[in-house]
């Protein structure tokens, strides 16, 4: 694995050149601060404490929002090409890109410090985090060439050395969300997969709902919101063995 990382490191600048001109346009963030809301995994905006973080294609921008009505730009750091999504968790930002997951320390909010990069083949990839594990989906597509379709579980207990612990083949994973033992992955035309993540080394695929197109999800305390080309779907998953359909708002 180490050797491969070194090889990759040498070759990645070449791949990045390409990504400068492609890259995945869609994307996202999430946060659980009381005063902020909760986004899906595709977000490019994230709020952590008194700061708003935004990723563009190459940079992480940060704004002081201690006074919410008066966001003040505080700087930016270059991350690399193909940056797509941002997920704040505790004192860290987990940034999804077409080349991997970047982990930043934001203990000093206006001085994000890069801790590590979990690299993989180039593909679109949002990330969510819970406790010591990050869940990363990797998807191929028109704008994310050379991709696989898979879900990686990554041990981040050492933030400087993220380690893959398990990998699963997927159909066409887009957004994802985790709440306790339940992991939800939207699978594009194949809808939504519900996965038991109580053992991160051995995820168990419970069942799927494939009656709609799935783009992103927000799970929260037994209540799931899913969005896709067909519209907005809501489910009750307080009993994970029996997802209950609540409502739908269809597209026109």
């Amino acid at each position: 694995m180490k050797k491969m990382n070194k090889t990759l490191f040498a070759i990645i600048p070449i791949g990045l050149l390409l990504l400068a001109f492609s890259g995945c346009e869609e994307s996202n963030d999430s946060m659980r601060l009381d005063s902020a809301g909760q986004a899906g995994s595709m977000a490019r905006f994230a709020i952590s404490k008194n700061n708003l973080y935004i990723v563009d294609n190459q940079n992480l921008l940060f704004f002081d929002i201690a006074d919410a009505t008066n966001p003040e730009p505080k700087g930016r750091v270059n991350i690399g090409f193909g940056i797509e999504t941002i997920f704040p968790y505790r004192n860290n930002l987990f940034i999804g890109s077409t080349t991997g997951m970047h982990i930043y320390d934001i203990s000093t909010p206006t001085n994000p410090v890069k801790l590590s990069v979990y690299r993989h083949v180039t593909a679109c990839d949002p990330v969510v985090v819970q406790d010591n594990y990050a869940y990363v989906t990797i998807r191929d597509g028109v704008e994310c060439r050379f991709g696989e379709n898979q879900l990686d579980v990554v041990d981040i207990s050492n933030l400087r050395e993220p380690q893959a612990v398990s990998t699963y083949l997927m159909y066409n994973p887009h957004g994802l969300g985790i709440d306790g033992m339940s992991l939800f992955v939207t699978e594009g035309e194949q809808g939504l997969k519900i996965i038991d993540a109580s053992d991160p080394f051995n995820l168990v695929f419970r069942f799927e709902i494939n009656s709609f197109h799935g783009y992103d999800v927000i799970p929260n305390n037994g209540h799931l919101i899913a969005i896709g080309k067909d519209g907005l779907y809501q489910y009750d998953y307080s009993n994970p063995d029996n997802m209950t359909f609540l409502s739908k708002i269809s597209v026109q």
């Binding site: 809301g37 986004a39 899906g40 783009y215 969005i227 519209g231 907005l232 597209v251």
Partner: peptide
């Protein structure tokens, strides 16, 4: 208005933002 090409979602309090 009707949803046509929905993108990202955001939840805050009892409201959803699509």
């Amino acid at each position: 208005r009707q949803l046509e090409r929905p993108g990202k979602i955001y939840r805050k309090g009892g409201f959803l933002y699509i």
